[in-house]
Computed example of a mutant assay.
Amino acid sequence: MTGIPASAAGGSSAARGAASTPGASGATGRPGAKPAKGQAGASVAKSVSRPDGPDALGGSGPADGQEGARPARGGKLTAAAVNQASVWNVANLLTMLRLFLVPGFVALMLADGGYDPAWRSLAWAAFAIAMITDLFDGHLARTYNLVTDFGKIADPIADKAIMGAALICLSWLGDLPWWVTAVILGRELGITLLRFLVIRYGVIPASRGGKLKTLTQGVAVGMYVLALTGWLATLRFWVMAVAIVLTVVTGLDYVRQAIVLRRRGIAERRVAAEEAER
């Protein structure tokens, strides 16, 4: 149709067919009249240009005034499967390896009374592997976006488990005073609890001193695990002394950061509440 009224066509069959077509509305407002060519072209252009049109992305989009298309029946199950599969990444596997090494390390450490140099060397190898994986799993998780809720919980547990097992075994065998074990483990568990207490106000980042403390502790404990004698035994004593000093100093610094973070968070919440009341 070119927009000429149907009556002008002398009652042609085309006009009669247009009038009998149900559900159509023409430009003149009469029910059953076909749209003009210009209007039909505009309708086609609209359906093509709309992102939710029937041909958008090869699917059928929602019509005007209708709700969005329902997701596929298995969509949620698929998303859940992807989330579960993401837990099994390299970083988390290294963390789990470190957890599995803890009972093996204890068995090697206490084998044959705990004083056999050969068994102590194997125990040192297990401890060294655990410390090395501790250095790599966090780096891999942050670099390749492999951070998961499981890793956030399991990684600090694995760190404390292998270090705590080594310290307790050494004190049990009489190679290390119990007060050293108490200071190191008390600091580690206390700071971990403190992080959870102030997490509502923010995260306490790991400082360079804390990283140096972890490295020094690992070296010192590793030297005590080995059956060293002579000047190496004297050297490990001083390395452990440095580790204890760093443990105490960094622990106090974390306490200071937690106090500042809590005060700042409380102040920000108070200001936000006052602005909301205005």
Rank of each mutant, 00 (worst) to 15 (best):
A6K: 06
A9T: 15
A15E: 10
A18S: 14
T21N: 08
P22D: 01
P22L: 14
G26E: 09
A27G: 04
P31H: 11
G32D: 09
G38F: 04
Q39L: 10
A40W: 06
A45M: 13
R50V: 07
A56D: 09
S60F: 14
P62I: 05
A63S: 13
G65Q: 07
Q66F: 13
G68D: 14
G74E: 14
G74I: 01
G74H: 13
G75I: 01
G75R: 12
K76I: 11
A79V: 13
W88E: 01
W88T: 10
L93Q: 11
M96S: 08
L97I: 13
P103F: 08
A111K: 11
Y115S: 13
P117A: 15
A118N: 13
W119Y: 14
I129V: 15
I132K: 03
T133W: 06
T133Q: 02
F136L: 15
D137W: 03
L146F: 02
V147K: 03
K152V: 09
A154V: 15
A158P: 12
A165W: 07
S171P: 06
S171F: 03
G174N: 08
G174S: 06
L176R: 06
A182L: 15
I184C: 04
L185C: 08
T192A: 12
F196C: 02
F196I: 06
G202P: 06
V203I: 13
A206N: 10
R208I: 10
R208L: 12
R208G: 14
G210A: 01
T214A: 15
G218H: 01
V219W: 00
Y224W: 06
V225H: 09
V225E: 07
A227S: 12
A227Y: 01
L235V: 08
R236S: 14
M240T: 06
V242C: 11
A243I: 02
V245G: 09
L246Y: 05
V249D: 02
L252M: 12
D253T: 02
I259G: 03
L261I: 04
R264S: 13
R264V: 03
G265Y: 07
A267I: 05
A267H: 04
E268P: 00
R269W: 03
R270T: 15
R270W: 00
V271Y: 04
A273G: 09
E275P: 00
A276Y: 06
